[in-house]
Write a protein that binds this DNA or RNA. Structure first.
Lengths: 237, 237
DNA sequence: CTAAAGGGTTTTGCATGCAGATTGTCGAAG
DNA sequence: CTTCGACAATCTGCATGCAAAACCCTTTAG
């Protein structure tokens, strides 16, 4: 009886429910999205019951998913008290940004030495797409291409560990970076800085690229921090 | 019936079995140790049955532990085929080392600006303990204090994200770093390099500290890589 | 001799039930 | 009115059972 009922649930409760062998991965992605989108606010508890019903899976794969999200740093699990969405202070986010900048400066140096001409051409192509999105005022598209350009620097560095950590840690704070985009003031300036970044990369000037990137990210963070602190003060999620 | 038997198992099968609420954490640590110690060789499958019996826990917390270890990068899980200890090539390890060096150079710059005098004094104290271990020929102790000194640089940087990532990524390759210690050739030289590191830190000379650290780690990696490639060729774990 | 096909065994994926922990509620005492 | 405590409702931690997938060994066709 219980088995039949269980499988019926997984078949009807959620139309996009996961197949066998993918349930916990499905839950990880779903909860991650809920956190990034703000549907699950920071500090909120994540009751197993609610999520299982929402996703149409049972508690076992859900609990595996929560463990994964805990390692990823998106939730915190307390014994006998379950999971809660991690609450980050402005200082916490700044620390992550600072570390990511360090990673990217390392990647930049390596990229200038190791990138193939094709990889640099790809970065340039992305840059033009981004400039186009800027001219059209397509904010979301601009944001996404922007992310891709910075990732391309890591690709150019030919170091899988760098890229992996960059992606994982970026995910932790993606939500906060996006916020700053509502502040359009910095937009033209950011595009201009990207010109310089591209130039330095094309000329494979590692030292110059480092400094340009450092300034670019630091300016970006200052703008983001301004928006964030106005919005929430020190109490972020 | 089943419950009584289950709890009896957790009480007697493993004398150091975990308490309620700690079983998966216990399993994570136990399996991590088995991997680091080489008891579970790279490429080996990790059958749930065997581990549960060994640790005296049931499959549920074990599977949670394996998910955690997968995110940590120590095992790989394939659907319907279970977990296997990740096999790293010499190139994979080198990529991680390269990234860790980048992180430490970032931390070093920050440390020179932000460290308190007490924190630097702590680094110096560790340095003297390490030198003492060297003179006594206490290899293991030397290795551990060495790790602590490098961690202290991250502590001095006052950036929790940097320290967290450094610890997590170091854990992935701890096994390989340790190997190089059997090669005692580099020992006196390494101690000497540590003198320079300490000096640069005490004088808060970020640029110098960067270059000294870069050389130190690069030399260390060359020695390690030599041992590793002699031992396993390109087929590491 | 290799390759495909069967079938029994083992292993994984997951839903669930039970025990213990926590939380919420309400009444009594201060 | 607040505080403490008992009790109930709820939630988490975990062992387990069932189904599906993978595995392994034997048999058989090419």
């Amino acid at each position: 009886m219980q088995i039949v009922e269980g499988q019926a649930t997984s078949g009807e409760a959620a139309p996009d429910a996961a197949q066998r062998g993918q349930r916990s991965a499905f839950a990880v992605q779903a909860i991650r999205d809920m956190i990034v989108s703000g549907e699950l606010p920071a500090g909120e508890r994540v009751p197993e019951r609610v999520i299982t019903e929402r996703l149409g899976i049972s508690r076992t794969p859900l609990r595996e998913a929560l463990k994964v999200l805990e390692v990823e740093g998106l939730v915190q699990i307390s014994p006998n008290r379950g999971a809660m969405v991690v609450k980050l202070s402005l200082g916490d986010v700044e620390a992550v940004i600072e570390m990511l900048i360090g990673l990217e400066l390392s990647a930049a140096e390596l990229a200038c030495v190791r990138a193939s001409d094709e990889e640099i051409a790809r970065a340039e192509e992305l840059h033009h797409e981004m400039a186009s999105a800027y001219r059209r005022g397509a904010l979301i598209e601009y944001f996404n291409i922007n992310q891709q350009i910075h990732e391309q620097i890591f690709v150019c560095a030919h170091n899988a560990a760098l890229l992996r950590v960059y992606r994982a840690e970026s995910a932790r704070i993606r939500r906060f970076r996006f916020v700053s985009n509502r502040e359009a003031t910095r937009w033209p300036r950011a595009v201009q800085e990207h010109e310089q970044i591209l130039d330095a990369l094309k000329q494979r000037e590692g030292a110059i690229l480092r400094e340009v990137l450092r300034a670019h990210h630091w300016n970006g963070w200052k703008a983001t921090a301004k928006v964030l602190s106005e919005e929430w003060g020190e109490e972020l999620g």
